[in-house]
Design a protein around this nucleic acid. Structure first.
Lengths: 361, 361
DNA sequence: TTGTAAGCGTTATCAG
DNA sequence: CTGATAACGCTTACAA
């Protein structure tokens, strides 16, 4: 014997077969819906399996079948700021969808001194995952480049610049920000500032592009100091707002790359004594629940992150299941964000009304 | 041949052995640091393995060794509200620590119509995980009861009422809220309201207990309408605050079970025209980054959620590794939360100063 | 110090 | 319709 094992407790197919007086092969086929087993036998096997609490060993099954029904997800390297709520929602949706398809979700972090591609490569080479989901894509993303070459199914949440030859699900960020600008212009705003994120991240780049395109199309000019890039959290938002308030020619509205940034901006404005929603309008992006709880409520472009996670999970499993198709065609899905109107964005004219009402200054 | 397999691409130990002119057994032992292989051979094998990019198949290894180096984590059933930031941080820390120990993290959701224990049971029975981490414990937690019986290593983040016979890491929630009340009393507050969470959740129960004990010890009485339970998000916090403001005898401070609740409360107060930090003090619990960005900054009891995740990971792996110890002794660790002072809590006397400064009303 | 071979629990081919 | 049996890739007791 190669080793002392607690075989006595584990219910294996061998024990089940012996118990039934059948061969292992027959039991296996009965349990796996093979068409060539007698109805009666199938029923008998099923019943016994249930009663004895038999569950096939995933490990053995993997080895025999040569497939791994597990999707890998590598958490973005921890660059100081924690997992954002958007990612958490995606993960939740992804886990839910995979559970429904009986796939597993393997979540991995990137240890210091390593990089994401390295981690992904190990996961693939050691046979731990049979597919990947990649989130928060960069404009040029080494992870995508890597996955392209490793012939493993994967889906990106968010595109890259070149994105013809793989599956992705993205929000139409550019259109969303065009819509947001148009909405502000429709309210009467012409001087619109922008708090943008890391331009390496494709979503930030796309939103920035939407802002630029729409302001131009509407003939709003972007005064110096109106555009701030690299705002990735609430604190950076505060600082940027302070700079904006120092400008001789104030904007009347601030468009923010995310809700987190918008919330930071709102607080900074409130702190500076500016009445948000009247003296200054603010619009965010994400649709976080917190946007509903603050005052004024955050007007924002909402995306259904949980649903995105679910859909991405659906796609990656589908892709893995039809890995045999010759001319592989990739799901490439663009969803639209929708405007959620609350109190933080209003016509600039309200400012006068508010001042009048205040009656003091 | 049982099946057409793409054996040509996969670098197996067999190919490696053949390439080296050695037996598979020798190669395996060389790679696994067995003491009985010649130095020279070990070096040769290592080199070849590196060059040929050999990575042992985790699946085959699992089957042969009979151990699964994977920790399961079941996301709390999605009861409307999304994954809270605290959980996300824990996950991040857990994933990081496990990656360092070469363990994997399997994250699963609970499909509708199933329960968490069911999901955990399946994961164990099918051999997908070799341990568990359980978060957000309830006072009486069926997951813990289940894991106690299934002889698999696990660690709880948070205790249950009976918690002698398993490993856990918890924050001393009761002490934290005693400290918070003492701090408020030290500032001069006597009328302290409380926004509490779901009392089924042990942390909420413990914090509540701390509030009750400390107010009593300090002789502060809790007027009717001062205590609100079941406040689990920002919106509920708003409503509770509105009720509190209707009370004939206002409290001067509100202690909140979480930062999310505190932030909701602060916004509701601001909305009602109450100046937070002077007319009303607010204290939260968690130490979320957002607490730093709002105005006034949130005074809160901070816990290091990422570190908690890491430590929990460390413990569960350690426990799995010494599964042979006879008199199993469990790590039971209590960490303290630390007070982070910002602007949202001040002496009630400031109210007068603020009014004076305002100069108008 | 190394080779041999059994075994982990399942699936799948091929006879019967 | 069912039973043998090889194979998946690796580990490990034992023999050499």
């Amino acid at each position: 014997m190669p080793r002392v094992r607690k075989q006595n407790e584990t219910m294996s197919i061998a024990r089940l077969a012996k118990h039934l007086g059948l061969s292992e092969g027959t039991v296996s086929r009965a349990l796996n819906n093979y068409p060539d087993i007698a109805e009666k036998t199938v029923a008998r096997v099923r019943k016994a399996a249930d009663e004895l609490g038999y569950r096939p060993s995933t490990t053995a099954r993997r080895l025999a079948r040569g497939v791994v029904e597990t999707i890998g997800f590598v958490l973005p390297a921890r660059d100081g700021h924690q997992i954002d709520p958007f990612l958490a929602e995606i993960l939740d949706g992804l886990a839910t969808e995979l559970a429904l398809s009986d796939w597993d979700l393997l979540v991995s972090a990137v240890p210091d001194g390593h990089d994401e591609v390295e981690v992904m490569d190990r996961l693939i080479q050691s046979g731990k995952v049979g597919g990947f989901v990649v989130a928060r894509t960069k404009r040029h993303d080494p992870r995508i480049d890597f996955l392209r070459t490793s012939h493993i199914p994967f889906v990106a949440q968010g595109r890259t610049e070149n994105c013809d030859d793989y599956a992705w699900l993205d929000i139409d960020n550019e259109k969303a920000f065009v819509d947001a600008v148009n909405y502000l212009v429709g309210l009467g705003h012409r001087k619109i500032a922008y708090l943008g994120g890391d331009p390496e991240l494709n979503y930030a780049w796309q939103r920035r592009a939407g802002y630029l395109a729409a302001t131009k199309a509407n003939g709003c000019d972007i005064a110096p100091g109106y555009m701030h890039d690299g705002i990735t959290n609430e604190l950076a938002a505060r600082e940027a707002v302070l700079e904006i308030l120092k400008l001789p020619d104030h904007p009347t509205a601030i468009l923010c790359v995310t809700d987190a940034v918008a919330i930071g901006a709102i607080h900074a404005l409130a702190h500076a004594g500016i009445d948000v929603g009247s003296e200054m309008s603010v619009i965010g992006f994400d649709g976080l629940p917190m946007g509903e709880a603050i005052h004024p409520g955050l007007t924002t472009m909402s995306q259904a992150s949980y649903q995105i996670g679910r859909e991405v999970g659906r796609i990656v499993v589908a892709q893995a299941n039809k890995a045999n198709s010759p001319a592989s065609v990739f799901s490439q899905i663009l969803w639209e964000a929708s405007l959620t109107v609350r109190g933080s964005a209003n016509p600039p004219a309200l400012k006068l009304a508010a001042n009048a009402k205040g009656g003091i200054s």
